[in-house]
Nucleic acid binder design. Structure first.
Lengths: 188, 188, 188, 188
DNA sequence: TATGAATGAGGCTTCATTCAT
DNA sequence: GATGAATGAAGCCTCATTCAT
């Protein structure tokens, strides 16, 4: 069996990083091929177009978040309080990277108006995120209210990521997480 | 006096719209020229480069918001409550456009990692926005707290704009505005 | 009588300097207009095209050299030896400018193959230069030999200017001038 | 093995010819692509920019002259007299082309003032040329004198090429070569 | 699988020149 | 005379993609 230099998954991971930092339209296939150590020609053996690659990246990122962040929120191993703490801690680690922030939000703002083919992937991601948060907050709120709270918290999260990037300060994330925790124990 | 097809200000206004909908890197000088009814060559009579144009656009948008949104927040003609209502109403009208949302946030997420020359303009805009909101909320909160509240509300606002665009529903804006009003009369 | 901001002669002088330093094709009409403090539009009131301007420049430079360098070589006020010394001294002052060297030679090498319209002006200039030198050297040589010597000296002069520019050292001019003087008193 | 329409070396050779005849700034990438039978886009597979191409051309020309003209001057197979004759004969064949003359001198006069990146290549070329000639003339002169003589002869050579091009007559080269030979047997 | 040559369109920008005022 | 808007072609370069090997 020939040794594979690089897997599709690895390409997706690398591409996700490049897209996150540089944006979709500002990233060229050359950038991506180079980042993966592949020739441009070979790159097209893995992904037939930039658009297909981006879809795979969005799916890959979604999958990654689902596995490591969203799914555990539905597990029963931990108490709701513990789940929330774990969730927020992981979320911070995943997002609070000043160099690029949240690929999904970046891609949303950059492409929603022009590249409709990405919209379903973006929606699905946020849908899952909201659902996971809603599930956790159902411990404190009625389901419908929990859903609203979850929506608000995700919005606040993305707002905080934006500010983190604008000002280069992670405190916006920390402060936001505190508010999220507060709403769990002390509804308003 | 030379007759002009179009003024710099008009170009800036049109370009702001195009950039807002299509993004910075996905907008070509041809797109802009066409949108303005100009030849590509003539564009460089007005702006020496795409980058300079974008800076002018960011400044222009900032100026527009300052005049119509931020500055009135510091006036004395209205009661704080009225000012807040006017402010939020205007903000909604200015931002709640599904076709593009907020140019500043779009540009921030798209260019912060790669086009540092835009960062000061983006920061200045948000700084002014926060200051205006903080001033209003100083009616209810101590100055330092008001500043924090203002930061949070701007973040929530941008989060709501993101959701509005992702889901194509303006309700996120409306709900967010209600929360902002609530925090004015009922601190938490 | 309206005061003229700038005369054609002044434009020619300025343009000659710019062309000498930047070359013909690398100099834009904007460069020239700016160097003269004129708007591009007005520039075309003085010269109908870049080509016409260049012709005027070449003529102007030729005229300038004729008046200050070539013509005196035919005068009778000085002894041949003195004339030669004056001639070479002036030539040095006129050419030994590291920033651009000799416009005629620059233009020759740059345009002879593509812009035939300049050739007559270049030829006329060198013709006059050779004639002047030949006249001086007729004191020492037979007319036909003097002509050959003059041709050689002009060639050496341009070779020295080339080297001066390549190495940024004026010694090549000085050494060349010494050789020219030597050939006046000590034929070989 | 990939089949290539054309090799880098061939491109360099063709480009050298075009640059020699048309000059650096007056030669467009389209001109070069067309001359090579390539599309413009493909050109950038081989050379990352016009400037890089020009550097490669200057290096290529230098290499060509080194191999066929300069290096043999240091060999021992021939007598000094024979080496000189061979050298001058080859030099004539290489330079005495009315359509463009000497690329190095053309490029020097055109770009020394504005494109400093080419200067080292031009200097290296002339340095080698002078060294080769100096080596030959060391048969007749002391090393230091030989160096001066070589410098002079190269200058005269370029002066002669200039005149050849201005007047369209190769006699200037022939006459110059005769003088060079004379200085070998009959120092002055 | 793997290479990198090849394509053709399009990107940003500059230029010589003209024209209306 | 004087301005600077306006034009259209061209200049350098990049890009997504395809193809022959």
């Amino acid at each position: 069996m020939p040794v594979q230099k690089i897997t599709k998954e690895e390409i997706i991971t690398i591409a996700a990083g490049v897209f996150r930092q540089k944006g979709y339209h500002n990233t060229s296939m050359s950038d991506l091929a180079e980042a993966c150590g592949l020739t441009k020609g070979l790159f097209y053996h893995y992904f037939s177009s930039k658009e297909e690659l981006m879809k795979a990246v969005l799916q890959g990122v979604h999958f990654h978040f689902k596995k490591s962040l969203f799914a555990p929120a539905f597990g029963n191993a931990l108490s709701p309080q513990e789940k929330l703490e774990k969730f927020l801690g992981k979320a911070k680690r995943l997002f609070a990277t000043v160099d690029g922030g949240c690929l999904m939000a970046n891609t949303a703002l950059e492409t929603l108006g022009t590249n409709v083919e990405f919209t379903p992937f973006i929606r699905a991601f946020f849908e899952d995120w909201i659902s996971a948060m809603a599930h956790i907050y159902e411990h404190t709120y009625q389901p419908e209210v929990a859903r609203k709270v979850a929506e608000e918290i995700v919005q606040e999260f993305e707002g905080a990521v934006l500010f983190m990037r604008i000002y280069g300060e992670t405190r916006f994330i920390d402060e936001m997480l505190k508010r999220a925790q507060l709403r769990f124990v002390q509804p308003h």
